[in-house]
Amino acid sequence: MTNASKESFRFVVNGEPREVTNYPLSRLLDVLREDLELTGTKEGCGEGECGACSVLIDGRLVNSCLVPLAQVEGATVQTIEGVADGERLHRVQRAFVEHNGAQCGICTPGMVMAALELLAEHPTPTIEQIREGLAGNLCRCTGYIKIFEAVVAACQQTEGPR
């Protein structure tokens, strides 16, 4: 039986180069939360069903509970901590605040990441594209309508650089 040993991996998180030494198959979710202390990314199900752990890897939305550390070597990772510009919230985050898009908040970071990717791919998404873009994110509290409204509002808001 071969026992894996810890190795060093380098990747960029929220614009900063980072190096992490851990097992190659450690879940990115745990690495973010424990090694890098970025606890904004949440764990819901741990098996790809809820989207609470969603992050962007090289701009693409994935479940960090399903991605092993070795897979992000050399990649660029964006988490919810990298979304606001200092104190200034991103328009998606502002829309969640203004439209009561969060209750307990566990799903919110994942929802925001999904909305970010959606807007990057479809700057003026149709209702169908919004539904599809959020289809991998579950919410136990809001009943989705408020979240949906927040994302629609964020799409319509064009002023400002972000």
């Binding site: 790809g48 989207g51 939305l61 994935v62 479940n63 991605v67 999904a114 599809e132 994110n137």
Partner: peptide
């Protein structure tokens, strides 16, 4: 199949 996130992987 599944969700946008899963289809990426």
């Amino acid at each position: 199949v599944a969700t946008p996130q899963i289809r990426r992987l």
